[in-house]
C-alpha cells in the first residue's frame, strides 16, 4: 500500500511541476542557445549508448522472430517486413525512452539534486532565477528536441542490426529484408507521438526527483535512483496507454 501511496504522491508532484513548467514557458521562452546546448548535451550523451543498446535489441528481435518463423513456416523472407512496424511504433520509442531515462534522467537528477543539497538552488532563487525557469524549462525543451531525434537514430540502428543478423543467421538477402510494405503512417505517428511524450516527461520526472533531494550525498543517491525508477515506470505505463489508444483509433482492425 505504501508503494501505491508513493506512486500517487510522485504522480501528483510531477503533474504540478509539469504545469509549472508549461506556465513558465508561456511566460517566457528560454534563450535558444541554452536550449540547443542542452539538447546537444542530451543527444551527445546518449547517442553512443542508444546505438549499442538498440543495435543489440534489433539483433535479438530479428533473431527471435526469424527463429520462430523458420520453425513454424519454414520461411524467413518476411522477417524484415514484420519486425519494422513493431520497432517503429513500440520497441523503438519505448527502449529509447528507457535508455534516455537511464542515461539522461539520472544525469539531470544527480545534477539538480547536488545543486539542491549544496544550496545552489537557494542561491539561484536569491539571484532571481527560479529553479523551474532556470533549470527545468531548458531541459524539457531539450528533451522535446532530442528524444524524437534519438528515436529515429535508435530505430535505425536496430533495423540495421537486424539486417546484419538475419543475413548471418538465416542468409536472408538484404534486399528482401528491406521491406517497408507492412509499415504504415499510423505506426510512424504512434512512434513519434510516444517519443515526444517521453521527451517532455523524462526531464520533468528527473528534475522533480532532483528538486526533492534532501541531505548530503545520500540524498543525491536517493534522488538519482528515484529518477530512473519513476521515469522508466512512466515510459512503460504510457507505452501501454498510448498503444491501447492507438489500437482503438485504428478501429482494432489493424488496417
Amino acid at each position: 500500500m505504501s508503494a501505491l501511496r508513493f506512486a500517487w504522491d510522485e504522480a501528483r508532484g510531477v503533474a504540478r511541476l509539469l504545469a509549472d513548467t508549461a506556465q513558465a514557458l508561456l511566460r517566457a521562452r528560454p534563450p535558444a542557445a541554452v536550449v540547443w546546448a542542452q539538447a546537444f548535451d542530451v543527444g551527445n550523451r546518449s547517442v553512443f549508448f542508444i546505438l549499442v543498446t538498440l543495435g543489440f535489441l534489433g539483433a535479438i528481435l530479428n533473431f527471435q522472430t526469424g527463429f520462430q518463423a523458420q520453425r513454424i513456416f519454414g520461411d524467413t523472407s518476411l522477417i524484415g517486413a514484420a519486425t519494422l512496424p513493431i520497432l517503429v511504433r513500440q520497441l523503438g520509442p519505448t527502449l529509447v525512452g528507457l535508455m534516455v531515462a537511464i542515461r539522461v534522467g539520472t544525469g539531470i537528477a544527480a545534477e539538480i539534486g547536488s545543486m539542491v543539497v549544496t544550496e545552489q538552488v537557494d542561491a539561484l532563487r536569491m539571484c532571481g532565477a527560479g529553479p523551474v525557469d532556470y533549470l527545468v524549462k531548458p531541459r524539457v525543451l531539450a528533451g522535446l528536441i532530442a528524444v524524437p531525434a534519438l528515436w529515429v537514430i535508435g530505430t535505425g540502428a536496430a533495423w540495421m542490426a537486424g539486417l546484419w543478423v538475419t543475413h548471418l543467421a538465416f542468409q536472408t538477402n538484404p534486399a528482401t529484408y528491406v521491406n517497408l510494405d507492412l509499415t504504415r503512417g499510423a505506426d510512424i505517428a504512434e512512434g513519434l507521438f510516444k517519443a515526444v511524450v517521453f521527451g517532455i516527461l523524462i526531464p520533468v520526472i528527473a528534475a522533480h526527483s532532483g528538486l526533492q533531494a534532501r541531505g548530503g550525498s545520500e540524498g543525491v543517491g536517493r534522488a538519482t535512483t528515484q529518477a530512473v525508477v519513476s521515469a522508466s515506470l512512466a515510459v512503460i505505463v504510457l507505452d501501454l496507454l498510448i498503444g491501447a489508444v492507438a489500437f482503438g483509433l485504428r478501429g482494432g482492425a489493424g488496417a
Binding site: 549508448f49 549499442v52 539483433a59 535479438i60 544527480a110 539534486g113 549544496t118 534522488a223 535512483t225
Partner: peptide, 26 residues
C-alpha cells in the same frame, strides 16, 4: 568526489548495467 560524484556513479552504473543486459541477452 562528493555529492555530485555519488550521482555520477549511479549514472554510470545504470548505463553500464543496461549495456551488459542487452549484450548478454543477445
Amino acid at each position: 568526489g562528493g555529492a555530485l560524484g555519488v550521482g555520477r556513479a549511479v549514472n554510470s552504473s545504470v548505463v553500464a548495467s543496461a549495456i551488459s543486459i542487452f549484450v548478454l541477452d543477445y
